[in-house]
Design a binder for these strands. Structure first.
Length: 285
DNA sequence: ATTAATGTTCAGAA
DNA sequence: TTTCTGAACATTAA
């Protein structure tokens, strides 16, 4: 579930592990298929046990735990992963457990219902290589207004598809892409190279506003109830959604449009045809 | 039984 | 070279 606001909420929720020393790290006995851990757990243990956690950061949809070595332990929740410091929603899906000492919390957990998430340990060198590889763009809350359009500009892809691509900007997912484009009144299928120069600042402004507001609400917990903050409480931003998962309902903004659902890049896209007309493409189709 | 789900990646085809 | 499609990963719930 996690997009940038949910992952940022996780990061803040586990911040108390800063300063702790890692006593043990194990792949929890879990009857489900094990999640991917790189390097293999026994090698990973050798590099993290006995080490101290010096900072908890975030990059896009990843929680980055910095150690007092060259290494960073990276948690990537993907669809249903949670990084927690206390008992998870259902013990059945606990995947990874670190015991800690020297801080106010004594464990760090990774829980994942579907098990698509992954854990990765990267050295400084490997981490830098990942950042410069072009596979991961700048964080959506770090990028400047000036750089923002240049990440999309010449591409002919639909703007919503480009927003979901983590190499464009890191952190935006299916919920927030829809919400941002609705606020900015841009049709999700509009090709990037047909977005007017004057519109990019609007998209940038609404991107920051939606993400920052969603962080204040501690993210969105959808109807399946999976996503929880570190205290096992639901987020609140789902009640603020303007288009996501509201197909057939009246647009909250114009009160007349009916929210439509289309499929782009095999993902549902929700938008208001009235607030988000595809002006630049009107002649097509 | 079928479908879709907050994500990512890969192969193969336009 | 770029973009799109389908499938895969694993699990659950409607």
């Amino acid at each position: 579930m996690p997009e940038l606001p949910e992952v940022e909420t996780m990061r803040r929720g586990i911040k108390a592990v800063t300063g702790a020393t890692i006593v043990s790290a194990i792949r929890t006995p879990c009857k489900k298929k094990p999640i991917e851990i790189s390097p293999p757990v026994n090698q990973l243990q050798k590099r993290i046990v006995g080490r101290k956690i010096v900072a908890v950061e975030r990059l896009g949809k990843r929680v980055v735990v910095r150690l007092d070595t060259v290494d960073r332990l990276i948690f990537e929740p993907r669809m249903t992963g949670l990084v927690l410091i206390e008992d998870p929603p259902g013990g059945e899906h606990l995947r990874f457990q670190m015991r800690l000492k020297g801080a106010t919390v004594d464990e760090l957990l990774f829980w994942d219902r579907r098990g698509l998430g992954r854990i990765e340990l990267l050295s400084d060198e490997e981490y830098q290589a990942k950042l410069t590889s072009g596979k991961l763009g700048p964080d959506a809350l770090d990028i400047s207004e000036a750089e923002f359009p240049s990440r999309f500009n010449s591409s002919g892809r639909a703007i919503k598809v480009a927003m979901l691509d983590q190499s464009t900007v890191a952190g935006i997912g299916n919920i927030y892409a829809a919400e941002i484009l609705h606020l900015a009144r841009v049709h999700p299928a509009l090709p990037c190279n047909r977005v007017k120069d004057s519109v990019w600042p609007d998209i940038f402004r609404h991107m920051r506003d939606v993400l920052i507001t969603a962080i204040k609400y501690e993210g969105s917990t959808l109807s399946d109830g999976t996503y929880r903050n570190a205290l096992n409480e639901k987020g609140g931003y789902q009640n603020e959604h303007r288009v996501y998962d509201r197909e057939g309902e009246a647009c909250r903004q114009c009160k007349r449009g009916i929210i439509k659902r289309i499929v782009q890049a095999q993902r549902s896209t929700f938008f208001c045809p009235s607030c988000q007309p595809m002006i630049a493409l009107r002649k097509k189709k």
